[in-house]
Computed example of a mutant assay.
Amino acid sequence: MLKILEAIGSFVLRRLGEIGTIVMLYGETMRALRHKPRMRHILNQMSHLGVDSLLIVSLTLLFTGVVFTLQTADVLIRFGAQGTVGGIISIAIGRELGPVLVAVVCAGRVGAAITAEISTMKVTEQIDALRVMAVSPIDYLLVPRMLACMIVVPLLTVFGDVIGVFGGWLIAVCYEGISSYAYMNSIHVFVELFDLTGGVIKAVFFGNVIAVLGCYYGLHCPDGAEGVGRATTKTVVSSIIVIFILNAVLTFFLY
Rank of each mutant, 00 (worst) to 15 (best):
S180V: 10
F166I: 08
Y217M: 00
A211H: 03
L196F: 14
S239I: 03
Y175S: 00
D161Y: 01
E192G: 12
V209W: 01
H220N: 14
G160T: 12
A211S: 07
E226I: 15
E192M: 09
V191N: 01
G227Y: 07
R230E: 10
M184W: 07
I201L: 08
H220Q: 07
F194P: 10
E192D: 11
V204D: 05
V189A: 05
G218P: 06
F159S: 08
L156M: 11
T232V: 15
F206G: 04
F205V: 14
L155C: 15
G198P: 13
G224Y: 04
R230S: 13
N208C: 10
N185A: 10
F159L: 12
L156I: 14
G168L: 02
V228K: 05
I201K: 01
V228R: 08
I201H: 00
G167W: 12
V212H: 02
L156V: 14
G177N: 01
G199H: 00
K202R: 12
N185I: 10
A211D: 05
C174G: 07
G164F: 04
D223Y: 10
M184Y: 02
V212F: 00
L196I: 15
V162R: 07
V191R: 04
V204Y: 04
H188F: 06
F166R: 13
V158P: 06
D161L: 03
T197I: 11
S180P: 08
Y183G: 06
E176W: 05
A225V: 14
L213R: 03
G164Q: 00
G198C: 01
L193V: 15
I201N: 00
N185T: 11
F166W: 10
F190K: 02
A172E: 06
Y175Q: 03
T197Y: 07
Y175T: 12
V158F: 02
L213K: 05
I187K: 00
I178R: 04
L196V: 15
Y183M: 07
T233P: 08
S238D: 15
H220L: 03
H220T: 15
I187F: 02
A203V: 11
F190W: 04
G168T: 07
E192N: 11
I163G: 08
A182I: 13
I187R: 01
G224D: 13
G227H: 12
F206S: 03
A211K: 08
W169G: 06
E192Y: 04
V204R: 06
G199R: 11
A211T: 09
V204K: 05
G218V: 07
W169N: 13
Y181F: 03
V200W: 13
F205P: 03
G177K: 04
I210R: 01
G177F: 02
A172D: 10
P222E: 13
G227T: 12
T157F: 06
M184A: 07
D223L: 13
S179V: 09
L193Q: 10
P222V: 12
N185D: 09
Y181H: 03
A211Y: 01
I210V: 12
V173F: 14
T232A: 06
V209C: 02
Y216P: 06
H188N: 14
V228P: 05
S186H: 09
I163T: 00
I210H: 04
D195G: 01
L155P: 11
C215W: 00
L213Y: 01
N185Y: 05
C215P: 06
L156H: 08
F205M: 04
I210A: 03
I210E: 04
A211P: 02
H188R: 14
E226V: 15
